[in-house]
Design a protein around this nucleic acid. Sequence first.
DNA 1: GGAGATAGCGTTAACGTTCACATCTACAGG
DNA 2: CCTGTAGATGTGAACGTTAACGCTATCTCC
Lengths: 364, 364
Amino acid sequence: MAAAVIGPDRGRPGPVAHSHLGLEVDAVEAPLRKVGMRDVARLAGVSHQTVSRVLNDLPNVSASTRERVLDAVRVLNYRRNLAARTLVTSRSRTIGLIGFETTLAGPASMIYGIEKAAREAGYYVSIATVRSLERHAVLDAVEQLCAQAVEGIIAIAPKNSVADALTQVPVGTPAVGVGGADDGFVPMLRVDNVRGACMATSHLLDLGHETVHHVPGPADWPEARDRIDGWRQTLHAAAAPVPPIEAGDWSARSGYLRGQHLAADARVTAVFCGNDHIALGVLRAFHEAGRPVPARVSVVGFDDTPESGFFLPPLTTIHQDFAELGRRSVELLVAQLTGAAVANPGPVHLSPHLVVRASANAAP
Amino acid sequence: MAAAVIGPDRGRPGPVAHSHLGLEVDAVEAPLRKVGMRDVARLAGVSHQTVSRVLNDLPNVSASTRERVLDAVRVLNYRRNLAARTLVTSRSRTIGLIGFETTLAGPASMIYGIEKAAREAGYYVSIATVRSLERHAVLDAVEQLCAQAVEGIIAIAPKNSVADALTQVPVGTPAVGVGGADDGFVPMLRVDNVRGACMATSHLLDLGHETVHHVPGPADWPEARDRIDGWRQTLHAAAAPVPPIEAGDWSARSGYLRGQHLAADARVTAVFCGNDHIALGVLRAFHEAGRPVPARVSVVGFDDTPESGFFLPPLTTIHQDFAELGRRSVELLVAQLTGAAVANPGPVHLSPHLVVRASANAAP
DNA sequence: GGAGATAGCGTTAACGTTCACATCTACAGG
DNA sequence: CCTGTAGATGTGAACGTTAACGCTATCTCC
């Protein structure tokens, strides 16, 4: 008796079902309609409820029946229908992910970490990228995810508007923000940007620079603001002058543009950049201006992208673990989902750390 | 009469429902169980089927009824239950996405493009990242997506094993591969890597270099192989010697390592790199070896990441439009989903183009 | 003025699960 | 021998939609 080949289509090798009971006989007679529990039940000679019990690993099923059911499942190549399960249990086993600027190294790594952790926790993940951070756009994404009845939402939420929109998710759908502003409504998880900026600035100050210039990211990103704060605090604490800042947009291009201005100012000897891309642009600007880094000018970045170690010169920067951030955010969400809703414990801060390479030297 | 505030929870501002009919009176009496069509129907004084008709934009509903229903929907803040719809229509409105190395610029951009296009086409997207490209891992991802009853699958499928695993998806679930090998089973979409490699190599040859060295990506990536092919073909056509190659792993680190070997060889004057990251490493290696680019050595990359223009020197490279690739792949999938299954038209090739910057000069 | 259309609804039955029971054995204790 | 208990299984009713009809009016046309 030949192995059952279900619906051979354009030459695809069909799944080969094998059974050690004699069940495959008339198993695959009707590929007309999809196989359901009834079919499995009939083949195994039990009720659909018993099939359900087996598939859900519930007790009170004899070993022999269990085996028989599992066997029938294999023969029929049966898979549970998520929609039906969701309908009756009102659990979609899906978490929603709101992303922004997901092509950047940071967000992309977070998505990776989130997806991995979610899967391991038994959740599917549905993604909704948002093109702008305007309120309506974010609201739209929330709407999309809610329409899918996601059980929880993780928002890579760099701007306040996102955290804000998150308060609009239906009651009972927990949400977690990662890397954004803390609005007090939604648990938030992020790297301690203030601390990171302190480390970067201190490092440069310790190297003997009189003060440190800063090329921050866009003003409406909490990350950028925190880094500015950390930078400013450190300068204040050291009684160093606080130079004016001109914000970039996280891109290398913006770093290059701001860098050209800085390079024209003979007094700048140390620059702390809002991220590594900005640093790359700044590096190029100083190079073109004939002010070699790190001989005459020192530069420190933020993020530690995999490429930073191969810039010219290799970039001293602040490392943050995006994937870990993603992992932790899932942990936080799942905790809310399963255990009693955690009392909002305030923002959780992960520690970044300084990676010393070659772009920062003692003051000339 | 006060605006209805549904389930005020930990201070969240509830959605404010407003109606221009007098319907909101006893609308929100029972937030006990979720609102369904029955509730909307009752409030609007119609049958649930009429509600369904309105919500699905079906004809044969009078304007006044439609308005009344819509109004009730607003008042109750009702949303259709996807699970129930999926169950009865067997359409999940979801497409599955299999990603690999999604933190890289290319895949990340593709995901972005795919998500955007899918959303615009009215599909949700569920993502399954795969940690390795071994058969079982990919099969696992396919399984995950099928369990969600996705209507189609897009695989960012750089290796053959993925295309292979794709043949295992249940009949009736169309799949599209993007950027990978063509196995003849699944429609495949990609940038014309051979052509891109030709352009890069020709550019260097035209600059007067005797031959062009190549630092390719991993041998089991079709992209890497195609670029090798293009490079080799071009050298052959020009009757130039074909130097031996030593593959990298797409990372800047690997480029640096291979670059050190090349820099030790006085004969190499032109290097075509498998991607921009490799190029970054190669750039650094030559810099450290005291062989300035582009004065003594020329380098060309592949991908044109947003940062490449700010390398030292700015990188001449091959641009490929990842987001467009993603967009087109959705287009291809949706075509299969809606229209009659397209006869597999063979792999679709998008054209890359050369971006000339400053890393390649005339031969010394 | 009766025979069709047709627009505008409503009724009933799926869809494939899980949940809350009911049932039926076997076996122990009195 | 009867009762109680627990394990193993089956039965029927949800879950919230859409699909397939069915039923009224109203309108049109000869």
